[in-house]
């Protein structure tokens, strides 16, 4: 999987702030649940199985725990 390219967000810092704000004051369990709901809502918004498969692969191959291909 190649990189996802440059950001599609016009205000990346503002989005990032909103994301953190949404988690403020939540317990770990509530944050996990929030993230799960958010992922499902985003998946529905994307609505394209091929794109979603690509995103799953991107998430799997980034980060310390990832297996690079």
């Amino acid at each position: 999987m190649t990189g996802m390219g440059t950001t599609g967000l016009t205000k990346p810092d503002a989005f990032y702030e909103s994301l953190l704000k949404a988690h403020e004051g939540l317990s770990k369990a509530d944050s996990d649940a929030f993230n799960a709901r958010l992922i499902l809502l985003m998946a529905n918004q994307i609505g394209d199985e091929a794109v979603l498969e690509g995103l799953l692969a991107s998430a799997a191959t980034s980060g310390v725990s990832a297996v690079k291909d």
Partner: peptide, 8 residues
């Protein structure tokens, strides 16, 4: 967590 998120 995902199962409960779906139901919620």
């Amino acid at each position: 967590i995902f199962r409960d998120a779906v139901l919620d």
